[in-house]
Design a protein around this nucleic acid. Structure first.
Lengths: 344, 344
DNA sequence: CTGAAAGCGCTTACAG
DNA sequence: CTGAAAGCGCTTACAG
């Protein structure tokens, strides 16, 4: 006979004729309970549709079996679509958590908010995953406080030598090298870089440094007139290309710091009557799903989001268990498609 | 002087020279606390970096300020990408929750799992949002049990007359009509439908019924040879188109039950040397981001995911507050692009 | 192997 | 306006 509220472990104890402690033990799989008792308790529990109250057990055990994902974005318009790369990461992180028996709390934050003091502090989550774009220097402080407070957290982003936290990222430098090497092999000599190239955006910067490295090693100059700042949106790519055209500096290839930028640039090229890859070869970074659907299909560097999601979750779980965890880079893969293929 | 553990309300009380009850009141914004006391308490709290333990307060108040999102999929391959439409919904639901001050717990489930007895039962969430594809008849039972148990839940899907739960969906029937009317206006007369058309997949079925309705009203026969089953994947679209070709029934247009199916079919058409829209006009459903990047751009029906996410969350919150909530359909919007535009 | 008891950190009547 | 006390539903030493 169930009352209005849900059944508690006392109800089960009563029905099974044991103490509440024994119910708790049985349901948690303690070896201290006899097989026979356990069966009786399980029977009673399923009869009353009993489920352990997570708030109570979390309060008692002081951990939650939950990870928090903080997606932070630059103050973008409220109704804009989420960056497809992050959406893909969100999907793979969700999957990775599910596989490991953890729940995932997802939250959006503006970069400006006080996210450095939540979730883990309120004990809703055992640790935090940080994912987002934005000015790195602007939130480095918050990151440091987080770590100093002993919050378990792992960040997706550039892997730098002096970081306070555990960061997982892909090998952006190598990706930048690969794209540039490929474009040079296609006969391009004036390769423009679209995207920020400063320590405010370390991921883009690493891609840029890979690009510059290859150019220099090939005896080619790195022409500042061929670099245009821009964040990771299509609109920004479109604008960046127009800025580049306005400078009247010649270029025969575009290396965009992200696929979104590349796609925006492709649209601008088309609007200006320039053919891809004939007049200008184009390459991006990320390999978002769209990249293989644009016309021509976009050459890019694949960041394996599945692997990334698993690496993030696994490292966070290691931190939570007080096991060693450390920053690390994931390999990237050059994906050559038609947007950069010249001649035969 | 902080101990190893985090500060509790007792620590704040001690520091502020008041009782623990007063701390709790002050921090919850109770009007029963004098301004002066409140200030002193807030000062102490921020000094000790105090945060309310959510597990304790949830246990006490019996609600969690959290919604759960259950994404269920057919037993798809583990490493497959999540359906882009759902990913987009996931993004908008996350945003909608954030705006309303709720946290979102995201979980993947196989359709076969026992998800009908979790989250809300364990008090981790105040209610559940259900989102997914799969055989409707197969989970209708679970849905009924959920609702019978008094679990607050809102489902995304077809809005049917005899549903046990609150469902929000778009006007699939109308969308099917709109596409079909448009294709007829383009001069198409033999329009094939790619996707399941049975009560197992009520959303697709409604789209199909809209299609059949317009054909009949136009005095055209609904030819069963022109309908091919398929789930919402590119691969399935590709295969469906080959099945259609193998039947040797003539067709001059494809109405795919989803964009993913349409995109797969477009690939198959290209592989068979058929031009779009010249030989075959193509239209899809959903307006996923890819739809505007395929070549030619895909005509489709837009489901406004932002509006959908907000409707789902708002209805669930209504249920939680014991306010009236009811199933409802969201309007759709025909988006005409090049894949279906013939002549000038 | 089992039970009685303490306690996790809050919220909220109850009494003043 | 404030404090002392009960209790939310568990888990886990402690004692047997």
């Amino acid at each position: 006979m169930q009352k209005k509220g849900k059944a508690t472990s006392f109800d089960i104890a009563h029905l099974a004729g044991v103490s509440q402690s024994t119910v708790s033990r049985a349901l948690r799989g303690s070896p201290l309970v006899s097989e026979e008792t356990r069966l009786r308790i399980e029977e009673a529990a399923s009869q009353l549709k009993y489920k352990v109250d997570k708030n109570a057990s979390n309060l008692r055990t002081r951990h939650s079996g939950t990870l928090a994902l903080l997606l932070f974005e630059d103050p973008t318009a409220d109704d804009s679509h989420i960056n497809p790369f992050f959406l893909s990461m969100l999907g793979s992180i969700t999957r990775a958590c599910a596989q490991r028996g953890y729940d995932l709390l997802v939250s959006f934050q503006q970069l400006s908010h006080d996210w450095h003091a939540d979730y883990a502090d309120t004990r809703k989550a055992d640790g935090i995953l940080l994912l987002g774009y934005g000015d790195y220097l602007a939130y480095r402080d918050k990151l440091e406080k987080l770590v100093a407070q002993g919050t378990h957290c792992v960040r997706w982003g550039a892997v730098l030598p002096d970081q306070p936290d555990v960061s997982i990222g892909c090998d952006n430098f190598r990706g930048g090298q690969d794209i540039t090497t490929h474009l040079l092999a296609q006969g391009c000599r004036r390769i423009a870089f679209l995207g920020d190239a400063s320590s405010h955006y370390p991921e883009f910067f690493d891609r840029y440094r890979g690009y510059a490295d290859v150019l220099e090693k090939s005896g080619l100059a790195v022409d500042p007139a061929l670099q245009v700042n821009g964040e990771s949106t299509e609109q920004s790519g479109y604008t960046a290309l127009e800025t580049l055209l306005a400078r009247a500096a010649k270029f025969d290839a575009i290396f965009a710091a992200s696929d979104l930028i590349a796609i925006g640039a492709m649209r601008a090229l088309a609007d200006h009557g320039l053919s891809i890859p004939g007049d200008v070869a184009v390459a991006g970074f990320d390999d978002i799903p769209m990249a293989s659907f644009v016309n021509p299909q976009l050459t890019t560097v694949r960041q394996d989001t599945r692997q990334a999601g698993e690496a993030l979750v696994d490292n966070l779980l290691r931190l939570i268990r007080d096991e060693p965890a450390q920053s690390g880079m994931l390999p990237v893969k050059l994906v050559v498609r038609k947007s950069s293929l010249r001649g035969h």
